[in-house]
Simulated scan of single mutants.
Amino acid sequence: MLRLLFLFCSFQIFLTVKSGAHSLWALSTLIIGDTPFPEFITVGMLDDIQVFYYDSNVNNLREQQSKHTECITQEAANLVFGDLYRRVKNIALFSKHQLNLTGGIHVQQELSGCELLDDGIPGPLLSRGAFNGADNVEWQFSLQQKTLQSEGVWSTVWNHIETNTHELLCANVYGPICIKALKNCLHIKKNEVMRKVKPRVRLLQKTLPDSGVAKVTCLATDFYPRHINLTLLRDGQPVSDHQITGGELLPNGDETYQMRKSLELSAEELQHHHYTCTAEHLSLDNKLDIGLEREWDPGTTTILSSVTAVALLVCVVGATIIIWWRRRRTGQSSQASQSSTYLSTPSADLD
Rank of each mutant, 00 (worst) to 15 (best):
R3Y: 07
L4E: 08
F8P: 01
C9L: 13
S19I: 10
L24P: 00
T29Q: 13
G33K: 01
T35Y: 00
T35L: 00
T35M: 02
P36A: 06
F37W: 09
F40Q: 06
I41V: 14
V43K: 01
V43G: 03
L46D: 00
D47T: 10
V51H: 10
F52C: 08
L61M: 07
R62H: 12
I72F: 01
Q74A: 15
E75I: 15
L79H: 07
G82I: 08
L84N: 10
H97Q: 07
L99V: 10
T102K: 14
H106M: 02
H106C: 00
C114P: 08
L116T: 09
D119G: 00
P122N: 00
G123K: 08
L125F: 11
S127T: 14
N132A: 01
Q144A: 11
Q144S: 11
K146Y: 07
T147W: 07
S150H: 13
E151Y: 06
E151T: 11
W158N: 12
E162C: 03
H166M: 14
V173R: 03
G175F: 04
I177S: 03
C178H: 07
I179K: 02
K180G: 15
A181Q: 02
N191A: 10
N191I: 01
R195T: 05
L208E: 15
L208R: 09
D210N: 11
G212M: 02
A214R: 13
A214L: 14
V216F: 01
A220T: 01
A220W: 02
D222E: 13
D222Y: 05
N229G: 12
N229K: 15
L230S: 03
R234C: 15
V239Q: 03
Y257T: 09
M259D: 04
M259K: 15
S266T: 15
A279K: 03
E280M: 09
E280W: 01
S283Q: 05
R294T: 06
E295A: 05
P298G: 00
T301D: 13
I303C: 08
S305N: 14
T308K: 08
T308L: 11
A309C: 11
C315Y: 07
V317R: 02
G318M: 07
A319H: 08
W325Q: 14
R327G: 03
T330S: 09
S339E: 11
S339K: 10
Y342P: 04
P346K: 11
P346I: 10
